[in-house]
């Protein structure tokens, strides 16, 4: 069922920009179009490019915000979330917790 939804209507998660749009809905209550426009603006891409896995993989690698198939040296997990919080100008709870335990 998960796969069927992902193919029929999903944004594509970390393969594209779905996780980033989701974060704007969750943290700022942005409706879908507003969240897509906000994320596209921050990434420097067109809204339609947000679900293009070829373009978004390059963008995610360049911005170091986590890729679906991360290479050696690419930001992964928590490292990527530090960069996402800064890029989207939002607080990510786990990033804040990480900072409070390590600094």
């Amino acid at each position: 069922m998960v796969i069927s939804h992902a193919l029929a209507s999903g944004m594509g998660g970390v393969r594209t920009a779905g996780d980033l749009v989701a974060r704007m809905q969750m943290t700022r209550n942005m409706r879908l179009d507003e969240a897509k426009e906000y994320v596209a603006g921050k990434l420097g891409v067109d809204v339609k490019e947000l679900t293009d896995p070829v373009i978004m993989d390059e963008v995610r690698e360049e911005l170091n915000i986590g890729r679906v198939q991360p290479g050696a040296g690419n930001a992964k997990g928590m490292e990527a979330k530090f960069n996402i919080a800064k890029l989207l100008d939002i607080k990510i709870n786990s990033v804040e917790k990480f900072k409070s335990k390590t600094s």
Partner: peptide
């Protein structure tokens, strides 16, 4: 057998109990 949205009309997916 399978239908999907037009490009650009994708939305966010949340899953309960994943």
């Amino acid at each position: 057998k399978f239908v999907s949205v037009e490009t650009g009309n994708e939305l966010v997916l949340t899953f309960d109990e994943g």
